[in-house]
Design a protein around this nucleic acid. Structure first.
Lengths: 157, 157
DNA sequence: TAGCTTGGTTGGTACTAGCAACTAGTCTCG
DNA sequence: CGAGACTAGTTGCTAGTACCAACCAAGCTA
């Protein structure tokens, strides 16, 4: 049914995307620096900084991780003094996770690095192509997300 | 020096890429199926199928993994009967890793799924935009890879 | 208050990942 | 030829990511 052209393009896109993801993955992996945080920890810090004091469950939901995994990731952040667990005045069972000054600062530095890196990547593009590139990545993300929702049968949110 | 426009675009790209990586990460993670293989195992199979019988070291080099990690990934593939380790007639120390029929078949199915998925993604683009999209992804990959090489100090290849 | 529900931790398993140490072949040079 | 250097692969160790299941303690509800 679908013309061979689509399949050809799809294969090319697959190869290109695989490459792109691998390059970014390795960039992340090797950035063992990441200002002392792992990638997951750094993502978690982003959420914590963005959503303010947050419970473990909410954090886990936001990150699509199991609460047990989340608990251990947060353990790591606590060991590294990037967050503190405070008791939740409105619910004795839960704790509020909050970024420390140092945690916030580290996250800021990471973000700065990443923005700088992306700026260097984009700098080889002509200004109109830059916007186009960003839009493409967004479109790819949406398309991929769409696919996921269809596959899984769309859960919450 | 650099106009704020670049930084704005860079931040947008960062956000978009972060999203993209997360979506793909989840796609991969949840694909516990992946026809019975994990993501790393599936990448490894791709290389093994593509480069024919290959030694562990060559495979590790190709995948940018430590040989110990590679050894264990290959263990997994062997347990799942996707590859066999044959002795290397030309060097008694090394083994040749070779895809089994079943391994090759599984990899083919995975690839088929992925191509189909990419076709669906692309189908929301007009035909000329498809080719352009692929090219843009390649350009991004190259730009990103470039950055990596500069950072690290460029190793082999 | 008894019992259900919920928030978080802990135990278990599996996989990814790297470094270090080790074994066993291979190669090189005296 | 043989000793020492080198190389291929495995194994031990640590750490992190990830899930499920079991659990405890606190809260809610009837």
């Amino acid at each position: 049914m679908s013309p061979p052209a689509l399949e050809r393009d799809a294969r090319a896109l697959l190869d290109a995307m695989t490459e792109l993801l691998r390059v970014y993955q390795f960039r992340d992996r090797d950035r063992l620096g990441y200002h002392g945080l792992t990638i997951t920890q750094s993502y978690a810090m982003e959420v914590i900084v963005r959503l303010g004091p947050i419970t473990l469950n909410d954090l886990a939901r936001e990150m699509n991780l199991d609460k047990s995994t989340m608990s251990r990731v947060v353990d790591g952040l606590e060991r590294k003094r990037a967050i503190v667990r405070r008791e939740n005045p409105s619910d004795g069972r839960s704790t509020l996770i909050e970024a420390t000054h140092s945690g916030r600062e580290r996250r800021r530095l990471i973000e700065e690095d990443l923005v700088a890196e992306n700026a260097r990547v984009l700098s080889s593009f002509a200004p109109p192509a830059r916007v186009q590139a960003v839009e493409l990545v967004r479109a790819l993300t949406n398309a991929a997300r769409q696919r996921r929702l269809e596959d899984v049968g769309g859960d919450e949110t």
